[in-house]
């Protein structure tokens, strides 16, 4: 098994990042600085963590439309707890538990009710979003203890803490889980062929539930970082993150039908998206061009891969 699918989307991604890099450099040469690198990294971490969780869900053959809602619900829970006087580490733990429970609900509903994940998580997206608004009365929560701000504003050797102490270790752990553990293999087996996996005695239900729990907890973690960085917990946060996280995972080489993909590919795609977003923003192009361009890149990446595949097939038949 390839770590990153070099025959597939990875080369396309590299070409796209090269073009973007050249473009933004011509537009604003000042982008080559450590400050910019860190700013871009900070921007990428939150959606990047959400996308890591989404990778597991999609690789196991599911999809999670509710990660953005969990991101919001978990951060306002933490926020309200802190405002009520709960010490911040306890509040963060509580928020992560909210993520865990949300993930568990998604997983159990998918497996027990045998309903496609897209429907379950569409429903829970409405519900979690609504809950976040209900418990806050729709108003932002702020005024947290200073210690909490370390998550999203702290630095280690001038490097933003969330990059070096959260995202990168998390990525390494998840990559090991994916490629060196039984669970990682089971995720891919479940996604490749659920029926065959079931017949070989794998309890695919448990595997699927576990992937939703991972996605839920990671979305909550991202929510904590975001609330800390912005010193504000927002009930309406993360609305776009559901779809962007899916776009990132697919750009990173995961098959939307499951079974194929890697967290490293997702990390690479996160970097490309962050580069496009930050690069265009640095050139003062409005946000709407950024999302439009990402849409185009998503379609182009899949199209180009399809064309390359077809060319390969043609060459194979011609040779044979």
């Amino acid at each position: 098994m390839n770590r990153i699918d070099w025959t597939g989307r990875a080369p396309v991604l590299i070409v796209i990042s090269a073009i973007t890099l050249i473009g933004v450099t011509i537009g604003a040469p000042g982008i080559w600085s450590v400050d910019n690198l860190f700013a871009m990294g900070v921007l990428a971490v939150e959606i990047g963590i959400i996308a890591l969780g989404q990778t597991f869900v999609i690789n196991a053959g599911g999809i999670d439309l509710s990660v953005g809602a969990i991101f919001a619900l978990a951060q306002v829970t933490m926020g309200l707890a802190m405002v009520a006087g709960v010490p911040w580490p306890v509040a963060v733990a509580l928020g992560l538990c909210v993520g865990l429970v949300c993930g568990l609900i998604n997983g159990l509903a998918t497996v027990w009710l045998r309903v496609p994940a897209i429907i379950v998580t569409l429903a829970t997206m409405f519900a979690f979003n609504g809950l976040a608004l209900v418990i806050t009365n729709g108003i932002d929560v702020s005024g947290f203890p200073d210690g909490f701000y370390v998550l999203g504003q702290g630095t280690i050797f001038t490097i933003p803490l969330q990059i070096i102490a959260i995202y990168l270790p998390l990525l390494i752990v998840l990559a090991i889980v994916q490629w060196r553990t039984r669970f990682g293999r089971l995720v891919h087996l479940t996604g490749t062929n659920a029926l065959a996996a079931r017949l070989t005695g794998i309890r695919i239900g448990r595997v699927q539930i576990a992937t939703f729990v991972i996605a839920g907890v990671l979305a909550a973690l991202a929510g904590a970082i975001s609330a800390s960085r912005l010193t504000t917990a927002r009930p309406d946060a993360g609305e776009v993150d559901n779809l962007i996280s899916i776009a990132i995972v697919v750009l990173g080489g995961s098959s939307i039908f499951g079974g194929k993909g890697s967290v490293l590919g997702t990390a690479l795609a996160t970097l490309v998206i962050a580069l496009v977003n930050y690069g265009l923003s640095f050139n003062n192009l409005n946000a709407v061009y950024q999302s439009g361009l990402i849409g185009l890149i998503l379609i182009a990446a899949v199209l180009m891969q399809n064309i390359m595949l077809r060319l390969q097939q043609r060459r194979a038949t011609a040779a044979g």
Partner: peptide, 20 residues
């Protein structure tokens, strides 16, 4: 330069790039 929806996280990202 501004976000496409009234989203403070996007505003902060833009401000961050403007500072740099």
């Amino acid at each position: 330069q501004g976000p496409s929806s009234a989203d403070v996280a996007q505003q902060v990202n833009i401000v961050s790039s403007l500072i740099n």
